[in-house]
Simulated assay, not measured.
Amino acid sequence: MREIVWDTETTGIMPGDGHRIVEIGAVELVGRTMTGRTFHTYIDPQRPMPKDAERVHGLSSEFLTGQPVFEQVIDGFLEFIGDAPLIAHNAAFDMEFLNWELKRAGMPIVPMSRAIDTLEISRKAHPGAKHTLDALCTRYGIDLSARTKHGALLDAELLARVYIELTGGRQIGFDLASAPAADDTPYERVSLAARAHHASQEELARHAAFVAGLDDPLWLS
């Protein structure tokens, strides 16, 4: 099964307030395994970058000015994701921004039914725990040393590893039941007779002799 783990960076938290996507990163999974195929692009939002947002991801107006605009990169992204499920952390946020940008460009939106939200999966798996990407990486022993700031491709790669752990780990694809016997003969189920749970007369006699030989047993004190 092919799945896409993805992330965005933006100029703010509400597309309705004029905020835009400035970075998209995506990672391909096939059978819960990272294939090495990725998609990554920066995007010129054609608006100033608020300082609060810049502190999160480190992307300045100066850096983004002259990068491709959304309309220039969206075809490549849509080709990369194909019809695969889209996995994101707090998926509603990324999907809302993507669809806002698609509508702005006069293109069909991506249905929310394609989204898989690792935040919701984590809340069900670990109620009462922290569910940030950093917290989940720490929980599953995933190296965070490269994550000094948010970055769409790095975060997508980290989230892919988290998603694999959240959904059963690397063993989820193992089909142990289908493994053949060494000599290619089928396994045979062997039924054993039920073991008796009462002592035999011989066992009772040995037990009585043992008890009789005890010196001042506690239960006779």
Rank of each mutant, 00 (worst) to 15 (best):
V5Q: 03
W6K: 02
D7K: 13
T8C: 03
G12A: 06
I13M: 12
G16I: 06
G16K: 06
D17M: 14
D17W: 09
D17V: 03
G18C: 09
R20S: 09
E23M: 12
I24D: 13
A26P: 02
R32E: 15
T33M: 15
M34A: 13
M34I: 13
T35N: 10
T35W: 01
R37F: 07
T38M: 05
H40A: 02
Y42G: 11
D44H: 06
P45V: 09
P48G: 08
P48D: 02
M49E: 06
P50D: 05
G58M: 01
G58L: 07
E62K: 09
Q67I: 01
Q67W: 04
Q67F: 00
P68H: 06
F70R: 04
F70K: 04
E71P: 06
E71R: 06
V73C: 01
D75F: 09
G76R: 04
F77V: 10
L78V: 03
D83W: 07
A84Y: 02
P85Y: 08
L86S: 05
L86V: 09
I87N: 02
A91T: 05
F93R: 11
D94P: 15
M95H: 02
E96Y: 01
E96S: 14
F97E: 03
N99L: 08
W100S: 12
E101R: 07
A105S: 15
P108E: 12
P108Y: 07
V110D: 00
P111T: 12
S113E: 13
S113D: 14
I116W: 03
D117V: 00
D117L: 03
L119Q: 01
L119N: 05
I121D: 14
S122H: 12
R123T: 00
R123H: 06
R123C: 00
A125F: 01
A125L: 10
A125R: 15
H126R: 02
G128L: 11
K130T: 08
K130V: 03
H131Y: 08
H131N: 00
H131C: 12
H131T: 12
T132G: 10
T132W: 10
L133D: 05
D134M: 05
D134Y: 11
D134T: 15
A135Y: 01
R139L: 14
I142L: 04
A146R: 15
A146E: 10
G151A: 03
L154R: 04
L159Q: 11
A160V: 05
V162Y: 02
R170P: 05
Q171L: 14
F174Y: 13
A177Q: 13
A179F: 12
A179Y: 13
P180W: 09
P186T: 02
A193D: 07
R195A: 12
R195E: 13
R195M: 01
A196F: 00
H197R: 13
H198Y: 09
A199F: 05
S200V: 00
Q201L: 03
Q201F: 00
L204N: 08
A205S: 11
A205W: 00
V211F: 08
A212T: 00
A212E: 11
G213Y: 01
P217N: 03
